[in-house]
Design a protein around this nucleic acid. Structure first.
Length: 922
RNA sequence: GGACGCGUAGCUCAGCGGGAGAGCACCUCGUUGACAUCGAGGGGGUCACAGGUUCGAUCCCUGUCGCGUCCACCA
């Protein structure tokens, strides 16, 4: 009899000497009735972490496999997208760890400039109605660090609840000292290489945060607006010219009106001037290719300081650039006094009113147009003329494009390459300075005369200044900080210790796979490619896996404002982390969105319970892995068959994981565990195992089956572990003595991944078990369709089968009796009248159940089958009669069809005979 | 305006040149010794539409319609 299962083995795994508390009732012989994630998950996670098993092995022979986490914002809390992304990373890292790689999943968080500053500003306002300016820069930044110490770990702890096996001993933060040093080094190096430069040009200005933002942080939103058509009178009184605008306030900064040189309407006006209403300035009418004569009036007002297109026109014509805003987008001293200090939207209203009053408003048109907004602030951004720091992205992009073109790094799915190329080939200078307080301070100092000294340290800057000026001069460090993405771009090497030449850097760079969402291909992936190649001479990843976007059950993007967010932690509470992980993994199919439903998660929770219960069955029946068990040596067809199926599954799942085929892997696991192992193997094994505690008719067969069942379970636990780590680890622990002969006694997490040779697949066992399974399944179907009472125990008659098939079915007698609920399996020459026949694999079987059934129903059933066969025969016959088909289709296809026809005809004949007999009965 | 992706069972999705599959939902039956978070069985699809290529198209090509996303566009 199988021994008592005890928990202490888990404590031994943990290696802490500290007993690990388990579920309350550890004295029972069996597993708990159901797996209880709430008590198991925290306990196992703590034990894993304490064991040091999340860190890569020290074994120098182990091949490195590294993943860097897309660092979540410190302000963040785990949403479903994180859950998906991190589950996939964990699946992959657990898989590779078990495969013996030196698997490193390097975690960390991002300081998230604007987002974090926002959170703390909001808090300040809430508690003391204070602004950051009231507080001052230093104190404010101090506040953020305090906040970070207190709340910054939230998302990390949430990742742990998911089961993420990150090496927390290597956790990094984009603003920690090491990464800051990397940032300074990169900045200074690129500056020296003239790849970073300072420039005065139009930027996207966010008036809410009073900072420049990059193109990528601008979000186009479609809103309702107006086109106002304004008349500008000619300076010489010879008429007027009409221009249209959606932003009337900008007219105060107009410095020209442009027309197309070929536009006949305006040819004579070129070179003349109009008097700009309100401002009262004369501005020239110029000829430029930019205006489209087909659009509007064909004449365009030019505001070089507040419009990207106008800016270029202004440059071409050397127009004055009048900045009319301050940092808050209020009108400044460059406009008439009545407008000074007005908010841009108030000014807009006033300009329109004034034009109307002047009789110069020619038309107002309603329009729906897209307007750029700050992605964080949500306010309309303004093109604004300022000095900023830029990265020459075009230059850095070249090798990054090449690396993908040449396949050094591959996108999975490959289709994302196109998106990547599209952006990279049209890349614009990257504005990296931000007028914020939270972030990496730009390592640049200004001396007298605006001379700039860029250096990694202040001392070095002073030294340069001294050299330049020949004496000590006061220096002022640039107030600005760097775009958050500047530091994240260095993540794959800065986290490994760069610029120091650390062992980690040597061992784990380049990383192997990056798993991330397509929404940050430009923000992050592209920039990591650029920086990685520039500073490490090697692309930071071999493979970039782009995961799907999670949506709600209606397919809407989840957002708080829509109220359709699903909280992954709530789902973990309700169904366990494993169920959520399995669901996300199963639905991670590429190139589409994931629509998540609770029902689905529940289904996979039930799947976990199913495995739990199957384990219970194994335990109760004394399944035990035998010393020296060799799956190649098992004798019973049933066992040979399941060994083969296990092998098929193991090989398919391994290939799928290796290839990021996450959905295929879970599909294979689900199918095998549910359909093969639980539904058939366990059921078919019951007669062999007999009743627990009672002697068996065939002890050798029973022992072999017990050993095989335990072996299969071990393999299954390993294969499933990357996706359902908690459940499998718990089962592994609780069946520790069942696996006394396991090659590995520690945590399943670090057990060896199964490597099963193809030779374990035995086609003859497949055929044999296949026949039995079909016989039972089809027999059940017949019983159910004809409503044969459950209590009925007819015989199963083998009417027509070859020698081997007969033997198989007779040997499987006890098994078929139990599972098909028949009294006996008997070979007969001809079925008695009224026996219900069914045909599988060329074998005709029959159930003599005439007394139970409705003859009319049975006749209908047979009739339906005959009809469908007839249709099939007809179609196939026609096909085979087509000369073109026979001549052109591949030989095997033609052969298949011939067989199909012959088979169908044979079955049809048998069923028709049965139908005739049925008639005879009546 | 440009690009990409997607329309397959009630729902969510696999399949992608030789008679369409899964999970969930639905219906029927079931107190058999792992499991009702269960078991057995079943119904349900002119694979968006129209052309074309082919012996053969859900699958390849073209077009149409519908949905989604990204990029560009503020006169």
């Amino acid at each position: 009899m199988f021994a008592v299962v005890q928990m202490p083995s888990v404590a031994a795994f943990a290696g802490t000497g500290r007993p690990v508390s388990g579920p309350a009732s550890q004295n029972s012989e069996m597993l708990e009735k159901t797996f209880d994630p709430k008590s198991v998950e925290p306990r196992l996670y703590a034990a894993w972490e304490a064991s040091g098993g999340f860190a890569p092995t020290d074994d120098p022979a182990a091949e490195p496999f590294s993943i860097v986490i897309p660092p979540p914002n410190v302000t963040g809390s785990l949403h479903i997208g994180h859950a998906l992304n991190n589950t996939l990373q964990d699946v992959l890292i657990r898989f590779e760890r078990m495969r013996g790689k030196a698997a490193l999943w390097l975690p960390g968080t991002d300081h998230a400039g604007i987002a974090t500053q926002m959170v703390v500003e909001r808090q300040l306002a809430a508690v003391g109605n204070q602004s950051r300016r009231d507080l001052g820069r230093e104190a404010f930044v101090e506040k953020i660090w305090e906040w970070k110490a207190k709340s910054g770990g939230t998302i990390v702890n949430q990742l742990k609840r998911l089961g993420a096996s990150c090496d927390w001993s290597r956790e990094r933060f984009t603003l920690d000292e090491g990464l800051s040093a990397a940032v300074r080094k990169v900045f200074v190096t690129l500056y020296k290489e003239k790849l970073i430069y300072r420039d005065k040009r139009l930027v996207n200005w966010d008036p809410h945060f009073q900072t420049a933002i990059s193109d990528l942080e601008v979000e186009q939103r479609e809103i309702d607006g107006h086109f106002w058509h304004f008349a500008y009178p000619m300076e010489d009184g010879s008429g007027e010219i009409v221009v249209a605008t959606t932003r009337p306030e900008t007219m105060l900064g107009d410095t020209a009106v442009a027309v197309h040189p070929s536009d006949e309407r305006y040819k004579s006006m070129i070179g003349k001037a109009v008097r700009l209403p309100i401002a009262g300035r004369p501005i020239p009418i110029i000829a430029d290719e930019y205006p489209d004569p087909e659009k509007g009036s064909g004449a365009v007002k030019i505001t070089p300081a507040h419009d990207f297109n106008d800016f270029m026109v202004g440059k071409r014509h050397n127009l004055p650039m009048i900045n009319i805003f301050d940092d808050f987008a209020r009108l400044n001293e460059n406009v008439p006094p009545a407008y000074r200090g007005l908010d841009r939207f108030a000014a807009r209203k006033k300009v329109v009113e004034e034009f109307e009053a002047l009789g110069l408003l020619r038309a107002v048109e309603k329009t729906r147009h897209t307007v750029p907004h700050g992605d964080r602030s949500g306010v309309v951004v303004e093109p604004y003329l300022t000095d900023q720091w830029y990265v020459n992205a075009e230059e850095l992009a070249k090798p990054a494009i090449k690396a993908i073109e040449e396949g050094d790094t591959v996108f999975v799915p490959k289709a994302w390459e196109k998106t990547y190329f599209e952006w990279m080939r049209n890349i614009q200078p990257w504005c990296i300075s931000r007028q914020l307080w939270w972030g990496h301070r730009i390592p640049a100092w200004f001396g007298p005369g605006g001379k700039i000294f860029v250096a990694e340290t202040e001392e070095e800057a002073r030294r340069q200044a001294y050299e330049h000026y020949g004496r000590e001069e006061p220096l002022r460090q640039d107030e600005d900080v760097l775009d958050t993405w500047f530091s994240s771009a260095l993540w794959p090497f800065s986290t490994l210790g760069w610029p120091e030449k650390t062992p980690d850097l040597a061992r784990f760079y380049p990383t192997h796979t990056l798993i991330t969402g397509f929404d940050i291909i430009f923000f992050w992936v592209a920039r990591m490619m650029m920086q990685g190649l520039h500073f490490m001479d090697e692309a930071p990843f071999k493979r970039i896996f782009i995961n799907a976007l999670v949506r709600d059950a209606e397919g809407k993007k989840m957002s708080k404002s829509k109220g359709n967010v699903m909280d992954p932690l709530e789902l973990v509470d309700d169904y366990g982390a494993d169920a959520l992980r399995f669901t996300l993994t199963a639905m991670s199919g590429q190139a589409r969105d994931i629509k998540l439903s609770r029902e689905r998660i529940e289904g996979y929770r039930n799947f976990g319970t199913k495995l739990w219960n199957a384990t219970n069955f194994c335990q109760v029946n004394g399944a035990a892995r035998a010393e020296g068990f060799d799956p190649a040596q098992v004798k019973l067809p049933l066992n040979r068959w399941i060994v083969g199926e296990t092998t098929r599954t193991a090989r398919a799942v391994t290939a799928a994981f290796a290839d990021c085929g996450f959905d295929q892997a879970t599909d294979g696991l689900y199918r095998f565990i549910r359909r093969q192992y639980c539904d058939w193997y366990v059921e078919l094994a019951k007669p062999v195992l007999g009743k627990p505690g009672e002697p068996s008719a065939d002890e050798a067969a029973r022992d072999e089956t017990r050993a095989t069942a335990a072996w299969v379970l071990d393999v299954v636990l390993k294969l499933l572990h990357p996706v359902m780590p908690f459940l499998t680890e718990e089962i592994w622990a609780q069946t520790a003595d069942m696996g006394a002969a396991r090659e590995h006694q520690g945590f399943l997490m670090v057990a060896r991944w199964p490597d099963l040779p193809q030779s374990l697949i035995d086609p003859s066992a497949d055929a044999e078990i296949g026949l039995i399974v079909e016989t039972i399944a089809e027999g059940r179907s017949v019983r159910a369709e004809l409503n044969v009472p459950n209590s009925a125990r007819p015989q199963l008659l083998v009417v027509d089968a070859d020698e081997a098939q007969r033997k198989v079915l007779q040997d499987a007698g006890p098994l078929i009796r139990q599972m098909l609920r028949v009294a006996d399996v008997r070979v007969v020459d001809a079925p008695p009248p009224g026996a219900i026949p069914y045909v599988i694999d060329g074998v005709t079987l029959a159930l003599p159940v005439a007394e139970f059934i409705d003859v009319a129903a049975e006749r209908a059933r047979l009739g339906k089958e005959v009809a469908s066969l007839a249709a099939d025969i007809d179609r196939t016959a026609k096909k085979l009669a087509n000369v073109d088909f026979v001549a052109r289709a591949p030989e095997e296809v033609v052969e298949d069809n011939r067989e199909r026809l012959a088979d169908a005809e044979a079955v049809k004949a048998k069923l028709e005979a049965a139908l005739a007999r049925l008639g005879a009965v009546v």
